[in-house]
């Protein structure tokens, strides 16, 4: 079953074409990253899915059904900014959400605990710091333990510890089998958790699908030793070497086939080269993304 299917969604604000015929599908159980620079249409797209914006053309389904409030109640959504009644406490704001989603109020204590807000739950929302507001918004999405989450820049306004916590939380949610649709321009935020991505640029979908098929991110090996020039000469003789680059005092070797690092090490040692650095790495999503959006 597909959680979300978009078909030719277009949206225009005056002269700005915010989305241009965007179509893709979010499979159940995936962690789906919607990537793109600021202003690429990520929030507009999620706004249409959550019915706060109306698409000019195109349509979409949620859980293979025509979208309505019933489907939205089964999704925990954080869109753009935390939207709460300033004069009410965090707890009372979540009471309203529980009523809208028709979920048990007993769950409020659990989500406030996860968000680290239990101590301040009875203080008015307007007294919260930016990070606490964002935490309340995250608690709001988790209310009722929905199987699908839509998170738009979930770590906005959080301090480094908070960002790490959110990343951990998303990982944990993904492992528990939930479907997570996440928009972010912070790539390392999604890098570690995404199974699927859609890449948007200026409202156009560049690509979408499983992250390893749509983004070429081959492994490479980082090497260093006391005699870098000799190491370089030797590596160039390796039959599977594709590309070689010297960056930050280490050589990055890209191979055209699978290379066992221990065999590589042993081969180099046999040639009299004793490595002081050897690491298998994967090209970062950011690098792959930049390559894609710049072409």
């Amino acid at each position: 079953m597909s959680i979300l299917t978009l078909r030719n969604i277009s949206k225009r604000y005056g002269s700005l074409q915010a989305l241009r015929e965007v179509s893709f599908e979010v499979p159940r159980g995936s962690v789906f990253g919607i990537l793109g620079p600021n202003g690429s249409g990520k929030t507009t797209l999620l706004g249409i899915v959550t019915d706060v914006l109306k698409a000019d053309t195109g349509d979409f389904t949620l859980f293979d059904q025509l979208p309505s409030a019933t489907q939205r109640r089964q999704i925990g959504t954080l869109l753009e900014t935390p939207n709460f009644y300033h004069y009410l406490s965090g707890y009372r704001n979540l009471q309203i959400t529980a009523a809208v989603k028709q979920r048990d109020e007993k769950d409020i204590a659990r989500v406030l605990e996860i968000a680290g807000l239990s101590a301040r739950q009875h203080a008015a929302f307007k007294t919260y710091s930016l990070g606490m507001k964002q935490r309340l918004a995250i608690a709001n999405t988790l209310l009722g333990d929905p199987d699908v989450l839509i998170l738009d820049e979930p770590s906005n306004g959080l301090d480094p510890a908070g960002i790490a916590e959110v990343r951990g939380l998303i990982k944990q949610l993904a492992q528990s089998g939930k479907t997570i649709i996440m928009a972010s321009h912070l790539l390392d935020e999604v890098e570690k958790v995404c199974t699927h991505v859609a890449v948007l640029q200026k409202g156009k979908l560049l690509t979408s699908g499983p992250v390893n098929t749509v983004m070429v991110r081959e492994d490479f090996v980082e090497l260093a030793c006391n005699d870098m020039s000799r190491l370089e000469v030797l590596l160039r003789q390796h039959p599977l070497l594709g590309n070689l680059a010297l960056t930050g005092g280490v050589l990055q070797a890209f191979f055209t086939g699978a290379v066992d690092p221990s065999e590589l090490n042993s081969w180099l040692a046999g040639q009299g080269i004793w490595l002081n650095h050897l690491q298998v790495r994967r090209k970062s999503l950011e690098a792959a993304f930049l390559e894609m959006t710049q072409n």
Binding site: V52, L79, N83, H86, V100, K101
Partner: peptide, 14 residues
């Protein structure tokens, strides 16, 4: 408070 958005997002019909 932009809660008109949140209410729809969370599961009210417009």
């Amino acid at each position: 408070y932009k809660t008109h958005r949140q209410l729809v997002i969370d599961g009210w019909e417009r």
